[in-house]
């Protein structure tokens, strides 16, 4: 346990406190988008604006989670491998297990921070009212919904070149954000795009959060969709990890 605690302190320091790209891209950028779309680029009645401010909070929480998983976690795992940290920890008596547990927990913590900051801005600036139940539901839903996105991040981290990973992450994040309706309503897209969009995990998560915040209800079909995505991606990640392990190769480079 003392090793896990030391690893958590180590990772929290480097991934949260001293990580400008997390602070800027995962937290401040979604906050910026939230303010832009709810305070500047918005029309309608007061009631419509208030409802949009609640619904769009969910969108930006999902967007922040997407950035955290596909840019943050995927890049982190690759860099730690490339820059010798994984190799180093593998050679310690206790091995690498505490590293992976810690990275998982700190990634959830990063997501939690983003949810709290976004919700805080929504409450303070847009006077969004959330009951304690809604707040807890929002946080829990966001963390559960993070599972398939984090699995996707782990999958991406198997790419061995940073340039390829970055290009692929860009190719996934922005189209995924658009077709799952995080930036604009899904209804503005052609029918076939809507069909694809509704299958994505980000859409399912957005629906889950929207139902919790706007109606105080648990959307079971979205939750099921997210669980299926998680299960499928975990199977793919585990298979790939086994294949890579079997393929072997020394930790120490020749």
């Amino acid at each position: 346990m003392k090793i896990l605690i030391a690893q958590l302190q180590f990772d929290f320091r480097r991934l949260v406190l001293r990580n400008t790209s997390f602070q800027l891209f995962t937290v401040l950028m979604p906050v910026g988008f939230y303010l832009l779309f709810t305070k500047v680029l918005i029309t309608g009645t007061l009631g419509e604006k208030a409802q949009f401010a609640v619904g769009y909070l969910g969108n930006m929480i999902v967007y922040s989670g997407l950035l955290n998983a596909l840019f943050g976690l995927a890049t982190l795992l690759l860099h730690d491998r490339e820059r010798g940290l994984v190799r180093w920890l593998q050679l310690t008596p206790n091995g690498i297990c505490s590293y992976y547990v810690s990275v998982g927990l700190v990634t959830f913590a990063m997501n939690l921070i983003a949810v709290l900051v976004l919700s805080g801005v929504a409450v303070a600036v847009n006077h969004v009212q959330l009951t304690l139940g809604q707040g807890l539901g929002l946080t829990g839903g966001a963390l559960i919904g993070q599972l398939p996105l984090l699995s996707l991040g782990v999958l991406l981290s198997f790419i061995d070149r940073a340039e390829t990973l970055s290009a692929l992450a860009n190719l996934i994040v922005f189209p995924l954000a658009i077709i799952s309706g995080l930036w604009w309503p899904l209804g503005v897209f052609p029918q076939w795009v809507q069909v694809i969009g509704k299958v994505t995990p980000t859409y399912q998560l957005n629906q889950l959060l929207g139902a919790l915040m706007l109606h105080g209800k648990l959307n079971l079909s979205s939750l099921t969709g997210l669980m299926l995505w998680t299960l499928g991606l975990i199977i793919v990640v585990a298979s790939l990890a086994r294949y890579r392990l079997k393929r072997g190769g020394g930790v120490v480079q020749s």
Partner: peptide
């Protein structure tokens, strides 16, 4: 090891914990 956001003291303290 050349990971970002970590000092010499940090990585030595973490490693020391394993032994």
């Amino acid at each position: 090891i050349a990971v970002q956001g970590i000092t010499v003291g940090d990585v030595l303290k973490l490693t020391a914990r394993h032994y």
